[in-house]
C-alpha cells in the first residue's frame, strides 16, 4: 500500500469515495438547469427596465411574478456560483490553510449577496 496515490491526510479523512462530492456535483448540475430559464427571465427584466425611472422599476420588481423570478434566480444563482467557485479555489490554492480561508470567504460572499438581494426584493415588494 506504500504506492497509493492518496495523501496521508486524504487517507485519514477517508473522503473521495462519494462522501460529500456527489452532493456537490449534483447541486451544481441542478442549479445549472434551474439557472437557464431564470437567467433568461432576469436578463429580459433588466433589459426592459434598465433606463426607466425609479417608480417604474420599483413597480415592475414589485410585481409578484417578477419578484418571485428574481428571488429564484438569486437563490439558484448564488448557490451555483458558490459551488463553482469552490472548485476553482480547490484547483488553484494548494496551501491547505489558505484554501480553507478562501472557501470561508467564498461562503460569506455568497451569503451577503443572497441576503442583500432577497432583502431588497422584499423591501421593494412589501414597502416601508
Amino acid at each position: 500500500m506504500s504506492q497509493s496515490l492518496k495523501t496521508p491526510l486524504g487517507k485519514v479523512r477517508g473522503l473521495g469515495s462519494a462522501k460529500s462530492g456527489t452532493d456537490h456535483f449534483w447541486m451544481q448540475r441542478l442549479t445549472a438547469i434551474a439557472n437557464v430559464p431564470l437567467a433568461v427571465a432576469f436578463v429580459i427584466l433588466l433589459a426592459l427596465t434598465i433606463g426607466k425611472p425609479h417608480a417604474v422599476q420599483a413597480a415592475t420588481l414589485a410585481n409578484p411574478i417578477a419578484a418571485i423570478l428574481v428571488l429564484l434566480f438569486v437563490v439558484a444563482g448564488v448557490w451555483h456560483m458558490r459551488l463553482g467557485m469552490q472548485v476553482v479555489i480547490e484547483d488553484y490554492v494548494p496551501n491547505e490553510g489558505r484554501r480553507i480561508a478562501f472557501i470561508v470567504i467564498n461562503t460569506f460572499f455568497a451569503a451577503v449577496v443572497a441576503v442583500a438581494s432577497i432583502y431588497a426584493v422584499f423591501k421593494i415588494s412589501f414597502g416601508a
Binding site: 432576469f42 456560483m81 463553482g84 467557485m85 449577496v113 438581494s117 432583502y119 431588497a120 423591501k123 421593494i124
Partner: peptide
Amino acid sequence: TGIALYLGTLIVVWWLVAVASGP
C-alpha cells in the same frame, strides 16, 4: 465567464438594493 459572473453579481445586488433604497 463563471468567475466574471461571480463578480458580476455585485452589479445585480447593487441594482436591487438601489431600487429598494429609492430614487
